[in-house]
Simulated assay, not measured.
Amino acid sequence: MATVTANLLAALLPCPCVLCGMPGREALCPPCRAQFPADGAPRCPVCADPLPPGSHGVACGACVTRRPAFDATVAAVPYALPWDRLVLELKFGGQLAHARLFAELLAGAVRAAPALGAPALLCPVPLGTGRLAERGFNQALEIARPLARLLGVRVAPRLAERVQETSAQSRLHGGRRRANVAHVFAVPDRALVEGRHIGIVDDVMSSGQTLGELAAVFKRHGAARVTNLVFARTPPHSQRVS
């Protein structure tokens, strides 16, 4: 009955495609989905940086040389047209409906990597109180909620807390990015983390400093494994988005 009701509502209230505006029943119409498929390029399984063709399953040189605190990263799409526009519309334009599409594409990327294993808990990257009050929502949480339903796992919005306000990572580079996120996260309840596989959810991964710091905090509190689940991954030469 619920499925029939949902189909009826979809027919009566068509959803315009977020890319071309075509009326339909899905946020991404079939032509746009075919034109802009989810990212299938080989990527480092640890940090999701692009790899040369034929390099599936191997870690990049940077991760081999200096292993980050997180164990794996899944990215649905590259941070490039048209996805970058949608990210900005969600983050700064309040287009919360985009989060459901991001979750759908990200869930597909997770299912395409069965060896990864589903996390026990999803933790959206927390915002500081000032940034949250200014924006009115946490885009990572808006993605994490539908993603948790699609993956059949639980989202834990307060698994970690941001205990210090920081500058936007997009305004910083190199060592200043690392210093900006050092010691800014805390885990209120170690028992929820210890021995578990934690999935960190965010809209965009750029340098990985924020995700690496949060992963390190989880590892210090006994997490068995930490996986980043991000909608978009910036290319190495254009890491300008926090």
Rank of each mutant, 00 (worst) to 15 (best):
P52W: 03
P30W: 12
I143L: 15
P119H: 02
W83R: 07
R162K: 13
R196E: 08
V204K: 05
R100A: 15
V153G: 12
V110C: 14
A103Y: 02
L147G: 00
F102R: 01
S238I: 09
A120Q: 13
V193E: 01
A148N: 05
A27V: 06
L13C: 08
P31K: 05
L28C: 14
K91V: 02
V4D: 13
F102V: 04
L141G: 01
T129E: 15
V181S: 03
L150Y: 04
P235K: 11
D71T: 03
R225Q: 11
R158C: 08
P157T: 03
A59G: 01
V4A: 15
I200R: 02
P50C: 00
T73N: 10
A156L: 10
L192K: 00
R233G: 09
D71H: 11
G93C: 08
G152S: 09
P82N: 07
C123L: 14
F36W: 15
T5H: 04
C47T: 03
C32T: 07
P188A: 09
R100C: 13
P53V: 03
E134C: 09
L8K: 00
R66G: 00
P16N: 12
K91T: 01
P30Y: 09
A115H: 09
R145F: 09
R177H: 02
R100F: 13
F185L: 01
R158V: 05
G21N: 08
V187Y: 13
V155M: 11
H237P: 00
P45Y: 07
D189V: 12
G61C: 13
V181C: 01
F231G: 04
G93Q: 07
G212C: 15
A182T: 00
R145N: 02
S206D: 15
G152R: 10
R178Y: 05
H237T: 10
F185E: 06
L101M: 13
Q169L: 10
E194A: 14
N138Q: 12
A140F: 06
P52S: 06
L88A: 14
L150S: 10
L105N: 00
V18W: 14
A224W: 03
G93E: 06
G93A: 01
R43E: 09
L51C: 04
C63T: 04
L9F: 13
R162E: 01
L132V: 05
P146R: 06
C63N: 11
S238Q: 15
Y79I: 01
L86A: 10
E89M: 09
E134Y: 10
G57C: 10
A38M: 15
A232F: 11
L106F: 03
D189F: 14
R25A: 11
L9M: 12
H183L: 09
R66H: 10
R43V: 11
Q239C: 00
A59F: 02
A59T: 06
H197G: 07
L106P: 04
A75W: 02
D71S: 06
G136P: 00
D84T: 04
E213S: 11
